[in-house]
């Protein structure tokens, strides 16, 4: 059974990757389609998540070292960061604080229970970072992934209208997309030009690092 679950995950991901490369639309993002198809299979055959994880856990263990690997693209972005150091750092810090702060204020105002409130906080961070940050602060990682995707799709679907009424320059657009909506936002940035893409990528990386230190600090500070 574990081997089967392992193979099933790899196979679904390969098929969904093929479908994505055929149509190239964000709705068919392989993670999304793979997870949906696996959830359907588990429900259909009545397979508990624990049983699934006995096999899929081998894949899960690759996530930690893969997060470390993110240092490589960050290192390659250093020239862009050095060139616009102050505006980029400043706006990403303000963005990250807004992301956590607004999430907390909204969730607390409706009296959301602690575990769900914490799950809602890291949604602006890139998924591989949001997962360990969520488990560190005491939220539910799998649900956090769903919220990071919703944050990403919010940027993809609404940013044209958003920027029509709030016309940021290319750099501002990129920083807005990368800080609030990580990789999915960055994929949308391509439509706004090269400057927007590089700013979005740098903002996403910085937000990931700043967010993973700020998040636990924020939770400690407010003793949530």
């Amino acid at each position: 059974m574990p081997v089967l679950m392992f193979m099933l995950t790899i196979l679904s991901f390969m098929i969904m990757g093929k479908i994505y490369s055929e149509y190239r639309t964000p709705v068919l993002t392989p993670v999304l389609t793979t997870v949906v198809s696996l959830v359907v299979i588990l429900l259909l055959f009545d397979i508990p998540y624990d049983t699934y994880m006995k096999g899929a856990g081998w894949i899960d263990r690759m996530l930690g070292p893969a997060v470390v690997a993110l240092a490589y693209p960050m290192y390659r972005q250093r020239a862009v960061l050095q060139k616009h150091f102050l505006p980029v750092i400043g706006s990403v810090v303000v963005g990250v604080v807004t992301a956590f702060g607004s999430g907390y204020v909204m969730a607390a105002s409706i009296g959301l229970e602690r575990e769900l409130l914490l799950t809602l906080l890291p949604k602006s961070l890139t998924t591989p970072i949001a997962v360990p940050v969520t488990s560190e602060i005491g939220g539910i990682p799998s649900m956090a992934v769903a919220f990071t995707m919703i944050a990403g799709f919010t940027a993809i679907l609404t940013s044209p209208l958003f920027f029509k009424y709030i016309p940021f320059k290319d750099m501002g657009k990129g920083i807005a997309l990368g800080t609030a909506a990580h990789g999915l936002g960055t994929s949308k940035a391509i439509e706004y030009g090269e400057e927007t893409v590089s700013m979005s990528s740098v903002a996403m990386s910085l937000a990931a690092i700043i967010g993973s230190f700020f998040g636990p600090f924020f939770v400690w500070l407010l003793s949530i």
Partner: peptide
Amino acid sequence: ILMIVMTITGTWLTMFAAGFTSEKLS
């Protein structure tokens, strides 16, 4: 559904805050 609405709202607020700060600083 409420959490989804808060996620969407939070994303807009974050986009605004980050983009606005960048405009001011640059």
